[in-house]
């Protein structure tokens, strides 16, 4: 991931947001979607993505559907009910974080 220290904490929220918008997605699709949306600026690495997906699955935030696609099995991830509620909370947290960062980095000065 580009500048991984800054993005690391937001990876799961990014994944959950994408799944909220797209219903269900598989690992490679998620990496490509992020790359497309950010015009190649942000690249989620496989080494970061899959452990994050498995962790969310273990927490009951995501559930899995497996399908046979083009001679191989493909694992699709989608949000559970708990995951959908959690996404709203995490997005709100992320928005707060971004707002606070903006305030800190570009404070509006009162004269």
């Amino acid at each position: 991931m580009k500048n991984s220290q800054l993005y690391k904490g937001s990876l799961t929220t990014i994944v959950m947001k994408l799944l909220e918008e797209n219903g269900r997605m598989y690992g490679y699709e998620i990496t490509q979607k992020v790359k497309d949306i950010t015009k190649g600026e942000l690249k989620i690495t496989e080494g970061a993505l899959y452990p994050a997906l498995h962790k969310l699955e273990a927490e009951g935030v995501l559930e899995v559907e497996v399908e046979n696609v083009d001679n191989r099995l493909r694992k699709y991830y989608k949000l559970t009910e708990k995951g959908s509620a959690e996404t709203i909370n995490r997005l709100a947290e992320l928005e707060d974080f971004i707002r606070n960062m903006q305030t800190l980095v570009q404070p509006k000065l009162d004269y």
Partner: peptide, 14 residues
């Protein structure tokens, strides 16, 4: 392995 395989196969296909 199955998940890695699908990832690599998708990348190679592209």
């Amino acid at each position: 392995r199955q998940e890695m395989l699908d990832h690599i196969a998708s990348g190679v296909e592209q």
